[in-house]
Each structure stands twice: as C-alpha cells, then as structure tokens.
Design a protein around this nucleic acid. Sequence first.
DNA 1: AAAGCACGCGCG
DNA 2: AAAGCGCGCGTGCTTT
Length: 560
Amino acid sequence: MYLLLAAHQDGAAIQRISPSGKPTSDARPVTKGELPGVVRELELQRPRWVWSRAQDWYPELLARGVELERCHDLALCGSILANSALTAHTEYAKNAEKLVQDDDTTPARALQPPPPPSTQGALFEDIKPVVAGVVELRNEFAAQQAALADVDDADLSKRLQLLLAAESAGAIIAVEMQHAGVPWREELHEQILTEALGPRPPLGHRPPALEALCNELRHMLNSPALNPDSPQDLMRALHRNGIEVKSTRKWELQQSGHPAIQPLLAYKQLSRLHTANGWTWLDTWVRDGRFHPEYVVGGVVSGRWASRGGGALQIPRNIRAAVHAEPGHKLIVADASQLEPRVLVALAQDTKMAEAARDKDLYAGIAAQGFGGDRQKAKVALLGAIYGATTGESGRLMPQLARTYPRAVGFVEQAAREGEAGRTVTTRLGRSSPAPSLGWLRSQQSTTAEEQRRADTIARSRGRFTRNFVVQGSAAEWAACWLAELRRRLRTFRAEGRPSGELVFFLHDEVMVHAADDAVEACVEAIREAADAAKELMFGRIPVEFPVSIAVVDSYDKAK
DNA sequence: AAAGCACGCGCG
DNA sequence: AAAGCGCGCGTGCTTT
C-alpha cells in the first residue's frame, strides 16, 4: 500500500494511492501537531510512504519517536529515472530533459534540488517541506511509475526497481543515522588534542605545540615573520633556503633532506588536527556524546553518499579512539573487503578473475595467477585498471593484467571508450552517468591541432570518469542493498523483542553498528547475511565472494 | 565585506 | 612513492 505524504497549508495531507498513482481515498489534512500520531497509527498497516524527500519529513517524525519501515523518495528516484538509459525513451525522461538548463551541468531533477546547507545545530528546526502538494506529488509518483512500467525488459525493470527501493531505503537510513549519531567520547577526544597540541588556546591563537614548531621553523628558515599556513609565504621561505620545491605538498617536501623539513611536516600534521578536528570541531559537531553529521544520499553522481558538515566521511585515523562504544556496548565495524574489484569481476563475468575472487584476499589470488605472487603489484595493477592509470608503475602493469584477464580489463576499457566518445554508461542496477555538457561537446569539435590536443585530454579525462563510474556506482548499489538488508534484519530483531543494534555510521563500503553486548553475535550474523543477500539481489547466484571483515571493538581505532 | 578559487590533506 | 577515481573542508588569497 502506498500512502502519499504531502505539504498542505501549515501541516500535511495524507492520501492513499494505487501503485500507478491513482488516488484511492480522499486526501486527509493533518496538522503539524497531529502528524506524528497519525503517521504512527498508519504505519501499522506497513505502507510505503511516498514523499518529496525523506529529509523533509523524517527527521521531525523520528524526533517524535516515529520510525517508518519504507518509503519512496520522489526526489531521489526522480533523479535516477530522469537520467537512466533504461528509461531514456520514456515521457518522464523527455519531460525532465526540458527542465535542465542547457548552459550548465545540473543533473536533471524532477523536483527541487536539495536545500542549501543547514546551519549546524539546527538539524531539526530548519527544514521546511518543499512546496509540493498532494496533486503535484501524486502526478510525480504516477509519472515515475509509468516510466518504470515502460521498461520492457523484465530483468532490467526489476533491477531498476531494486535500485529505487535501495535508494529510498538509503534515504531513510541516512536520516536515522543522522538522528542516532556516532558514539563519541568528548573527553577522549580532548585527551588526544591535549597530548598532541597542548592545552586549548584562546580563540584565534595557535596551540602551544604549533606555536613552538612555528618558532622553530621561523628560526631554521631565517624568516622571522613566516606564516607556515600560507603556501605562498612558505614556498618563498623554502626557496630562500635552497629547498627547490614546486609545491608545498607533503610528498614533495619529503624528497628534501633539509633539517627544516621534519618540523615542517610535523607542523602540517598537527595543524591539520587542530583546524579540521580540534576543539572547535568538537564544540560544533558533538552533542551529548554523539557526532551528528548530515548524510547526503545521492550526493555523488555515482550513487555514493556525500555528507555535509563535520566532514563525516573523513574521520581521520588519529582521532578514531574517541569513537567509543557506550558502557555495556560494542562497536561492530564491518568492511566489504576489496569491494570494487569484486564488483568488477561480477560485472564483467570474468571467470578467471572469479577464481581469484573466491579467495578472502582477492589481490593475493590475482598475484598468484598473473604477477608471480607479488600482491602489491597485483593490487596496483587492478586499481589502476579501475581508475584508468596510464603512467607510473600502474600504467606499466596494465598489459600484463589485460593478458591474464581480458574480460575484466575489456569491460572497463569499453566503459572508457564510451565516455571518450561522449556517450553515457550505466551501472548494474540502472544508474547512468550524466551526459556530457554542451561545453564538452563543443570542445570535441575543434579544428586546430592545439585545440585537438586539448580536446583529446578532456575526452580521456571523461573516459576515466565513465570507466570508474560503472564500477564505483555498482559498488555503491551493492553497499546500498547491504545497508537496507542489514536494517531490515536489525528491525526484525527488535520487533521480535530480541536484542538488536543501531546503525550509527556508513562510509562507502563500511558500516558501524552500536550494539549491547548481548546483541553482538546476532548483529554480526546479520551483517554477513545482509552481504550475501546484497550479492544475490544484484547479481543472482554467481561464483564470486563478497567477504566482509568484521571487528568487534570498544573504539573505532581498534578496527582494521 | 562577501563570494569564489586554489591549495593541501583527510577519507573510501 | 605516486598514480588513476570519487568526495568535504579550512586556510589564504583574489575577485567582486
């Protein structure tokens, strides 16, 4: 059953609709205050909630203690359907195309783009539903369902439906994880900061350790006014001292043996800790022992999630000790091992590489088959194939890899050719890469030799993008299915009154579950089962393993 | 003074 | 040791 939840005057309206989007009841107006109660009541019928975006409604509902099982996120699904090659022939895609301005690269969207970044601390106050009433949303849903029905190939149609379901589940999970937050022990974080930087300085001042290093650098580089935070300033000072670097990047500085390099690198490292994850970050993003980032589902064209605020997807290793389970609980950190290479194996149906992928360590398997047992070489070669490396060691290893695995390498090469020619590519479940911009197309019609060279560079760059898109995007789909399957199992535990865990973090190919001690075993099992289920949902029964490495730990730094 | 860009570095 | 893909964000610096 589908229940439409739309904006209506100051509150909302709820209407039953059929799978094709026809109303099967009158729209019921509900005030803001009544909404949680009404939705909770209706949820007992296990509907699929159809709404503009999960972000518009679900944070508020969750804050009132209302959890929902499933939804259809019109904005996310619309964006997929408007771009997918599988629905390119439909009215839906053709209408969406008209909405795209022809002078930029904005992806087609059936509804409004996401709201501007909300200011921190206002996660639940600031969000206003998009101005979209019952009729508008119902029509949108009907149009999306019609587009789905227009996909003739039953297999492809099923995949696309799976993608929309997984994406919508992701939207729900993202809001729930945002609500739950990552368990964060502030005093452990502060301890790390104080040990590395000294006591907290007044606002706008360097902490003692940075101050000392800065003075040391000024002295060693004979530059009394040096600001090491200014690349220009720093570069001039280095040059004055005969350190001939072309940039101030860490790896380039490491080439030099000058005695000032060591304190400089130390300064850079500590400065990073202070500015990106120091006391200010802690004040801003951690409340009541939880880090509450905002996840942006569909924030990356490939289908990966992005995040907004607090750098949720970049929790650096050196502060992970502060991510700590609550008393009587554990963190279960699960990681899909070598996900992208395994997805490539499944996509390309490379039986030879599948043999290697039967091993828990895929790189070791590949090393044994084609690289004389050299695991590092095998890894560099394979990642190079997925990213489109042309130079360096990775580039040199490509022919060797192609000889051993013509199908897998051929698959990514084909994706690269498509991109270079200005065509789009499509993931396993049907998410397509954006079409090239008009500017791109224009660049390819160059005449002079100089223009031609530039055009080739741009074309190859797009080829690397599409090459990676199919693999990264399909891997993101696997991860979305994994996450959705895991959530379903955790909810079942709870519904049956058994101990369960809560999803608290997700990062591309990694999930974190916070669970009471007596729930750990079941959660671990659920994580593994969900991974198997995700594989089968996406690829059916294939002889490729998607092993998950799981660490049960007190703190995040102990995982891996 | 605000907005936008380049750099550099964190994560997968 | 970096390279080839995808991101967010703080800082300095330039443009508006």
